[in-house]
Design a protein around this nucleic acid. Structure first.
Lengths: 217, 217
DNA sequence: CCTACCGATCGGTAGG
DNA sequence: CCTACCGATCGGTAGG
């Protein structure tokens, strides 16, 4: 770290410029891939969108697959910053379960990414294609489901959800109801987001020991 | 019709051969598109898979978009034959609602299409891309949701589902829970199909006036 | 010898 | 339906 800093100073901020360039390219890559997918994302269009030359990529990434892997990591950090962290401002328990789902739907509705969700597109592309990209996408999905499941268990431990709640099953349902809202909203209208919201709210109302913790419809 | 028949006889079955070739190509197209999408489907690979030359397509279709539109129609007929019709052997009511969902999951599990579901991939590709393909995909989704909703209303009319059931909301939830099972199963394992099955079963058990109509877990 | 790029072009393949 | 091609663009790499 120290060595890097010294070197960077001597060479007039080249490393720092490189790092910023890299982050800017990844942000564009995630944005474009949310529409066209990780394969539909071409280096030529990404270069144009990021304002660099095509060959400039190969100073940062060996090949397209390395770019795809780093884009997944960038999108995972965005997911944490934009969805997981805001939801953790809500107190633990059944309200935090709902807050996670609603933060996700707001992320979609606000069109933070033009295609709605990077991970959804990546999952559909790579669910049946072996390789390191698939493994990274699978890990991201498992991490998200694991997080939802832990927040559900927390609510059970606090006595806010019934003891016999199947946490993994509920995590699947919450994720499914959220995922489908993107394509349904895109094809049939924004009412899909309300459907996704009410589906989980009603599910939680049926499972909670204290309905007063949850909002009305 | 009569004129076509006469012409066909005269020309030694050419029209009939053309029709069969067309159907065989569409079947391959839907199969390949279920994995790589309607855009990922390239004419070169489709030609090889169907055992025809690339230029042979242009005897049947003006351009790639025409092929995509016909592939959607072919997949819609397959959906009716493989899912809707079998489910209609179950008596109307809450049991038929569940039968529709389970027929769909069996269609996925049996890998009738190698990618699982043609429509799911097409929806994700075209939900944010204007044009005639998008309109056809949107219509297919609306038709399916409309069918599920009508079967739900039928169950309400028969007194098997609560009077205050929101049929369109329930149709959204059933579709969402089914759709997500494909990517979840592909990335994390077949348990996703069981999760999708149990989610809808439990949802219907909570809404039915006669739990004896539904199976145990 | 390093980095972060540039303009130009490699061998192949896309839809038509 | 075939061979034979087109304009363009793909992922990736050359020298400077």
């Amino acid at each position: 770290m120290y060595a890097e800093h010294v070197k960077d100073s001597k060479e007039d901020g080249r490393l720092e410029r490189g790092r910023r360039s890299r982050e800017a390219i990844l942000e564009k890559a995630v944005s474009l891939a949310s529409v066209d997918g990780l394969d539909g994302l071409t280096l030529g269009r990404l270069a144009t969108a990021a304002g660099v030359s095509k060959s400039g990529f190969f100073a940062h990434w060996r090949d397209k697959e390395q770019l795809q892997l780093d884009a997944i990591d960038w999108a995972a950090r965005q997911w944490i910053d934009e969805i997981v962290k805001p939801a953790h401002q809500t107190p633990p328990g059944v309200r935090r379960v709902l807050a996670l789902h609603e933060a996700r739907l707001r992320f979609y509705e606000a069109k933070v990414l033009p295609g709605g969700c990077f991970f959804f597109v990546a999952q559909v592309e790579f669910d049946d294609r072996p390789g390191p990209v698939r493994e990274r996408v699978a890990k991201a999905l498992a991490d998200w489901l694991g997080l939802v499941e832990r927040v559900v268990r927390e609510a059970m431990d606090l006595g806010e959800l019934a003891d016999d709640t199947d946490a993994a099953q509920l995590a699947y349902e919450i994720d499914a109801l959220g995922e489908a809202s993107i394509t349904h909203a895109g094809l049939l209208g924004d009412i899909a987001y309300d459907r996704a919201r009410r589906a989980v709210l009603h599910r939680l109302r049926a499972l909670t020991t204290d309905p007063a913790l949850l909002p009305e419809d």
